[in-house]
Design a protein around this nucleic acid. Structure first.
Length: 304
RNA sequence: GGUCCGAUGGAUGAGUGGUUUAGUCACCGGUCUGCAAAACCGUCUACAGCGGUUCGAAUCCGCUUCGGACCU
């Protein structure tokens, strides 16, 4: 029986995942691997609430500030890189903790993504141009021809979905739907999923307060430093977009801060919607460390 | 004491007699296999209170309450 185990800690932003992950990792004397699609990036530690230097010293972290803002990174690339890293970590450790709030990345890590080829950036930007000039409907129509099956099920009002399907169809010459198996990959390690959540009102208070703390910690300067790179995907991030608007003079500083709070709350809600569907997650309050450890150990026993 | 104006859903704000809803924002709910802290969808049926006119009132009339302006 396989004894390697990944403890996956999920939850909405501001729920206390980071602190919990440190406690759990210390308990098992194991490293942490991040599943946060924004903490990968270097240069934006405050706004993405990366673990601080003290925390990084206490526990070995992976995929924190590991990439440049200019790097092309996505959940597919992450799956490959993270699995490789896990394999290395499992040589010395029986347990690894994964923490983060990016649902799709967690899915990529735990269940895998279909093996789709990389799409040429040129094609992607061409489609983006066509979206602007021809409109969404024209592209949706094209998708109907290239992949009628997917056309039937896709959210046709969502440009991101239509464009993605189209770019795969065009670059592979095959219908996107024929390449989507939806199969869950079998992992060579066990997975225990821990969800952290609390009463909504309390969570929102925590989020609001955390934004204030970020501002005090210098979020504005951090955002100003990366402002020239504002167009990058890595900076389409709550906390930075609003600051950029403030720098542009579109909104006031106070408005920016309010918007960061609101958008963080919305993000938290979306995360909860996503994680709510995952029946493997066992939910706890962020303070219930002992209960959580107990649960993890009980899971380990039943799996053995 | 008197005159005038106003009172619309959590917020803002249209709507002066008649299918069904203003709109926007927030909240709430949801979608999800490569930009995912992204992108997208759905819902929230209110007209200050009471009475009257009318086939029918948020819309017209009266009174009451509350708010604002002005007059003595």
């Amino acid at each position: 029986m396989n004894t390697k185990r990944l403890i996956v800690i999920v939850g909405p932003t501001g729920s206390g995942k980071t602190d919990l992950s440190i406690r759990v990792a210390e308990h098992y004397a194991c490293p942490i691997i991040s599943t946060d699609s924004r903490q990968f990036y270097r240069g934006i530690p405050i706004g993405t609430a990366q673990p601080d230097s003290e925390q990084l010293e206490r526990v070995e972290h992976h995929f924190i500030a590991s990439h440049e803002l200019t790097d092309d990174f996505n959940c597919g690339a992450y799956e490959v890189a993270a699995l490789k890293r896990l394999e290395e970590l499992f040589v010395k450790h029986d347990t690894v903790v994964a923490v983060g709030g990016s649902g799709l990345y967690i899915k990529a890590l735990c269940e895998g993504m279909d093996d789709l080829p990389e799409v040429e950036p040129a094609l992607r930007s061409e489609l983006a141009e066509r979206l602007k000039s021809e409109g969404l409907e024209a592209l949706t129509e094209e998708l109907r021809k290239l992949d009628p099956a997917f056309y039937e099920v896709v959210d046709r009002k969502n440009p991101a979905r239509v464009l993605r399907a189209l770019e795969v169809c065009i670059s592979t010459g095959k219908p996107y739907s024929s390449l989507r198996t939806g199969e869950k990959r079998q992992r060579s390690f066990g997975i225990v999923k821990i969800g952290v959540n609390m009463e909504r009102a309390v969570l929102y208070e925590r989020i609001d307060r955390r934004v204030d703390i970020m501002v005090e910690a210098g979020l504005e300067n951090e955002a100003r430093a990366v402002y020239p790179l504002r167009h990058l995907n890595s900076l389409q991030t709550v906390g930075y977009r609003e600051m950029f608007d403030y720098f542009d003079g579109t909104i006031t500083r106070d408005e920016a801060i309010e918007l960061i709070k609101r958008n963080s709350r919305r993000y938290a809600k979306r995360q909860l919607t996503w994680f709510g569907r995952d029946e493997e997650i066992e939910w706890f309050l962020p303070t219930e460390t002992e209960k959580i450890i107990e649960y993890i150990d009980s899971k380990v026993c039943t799996l053995k």
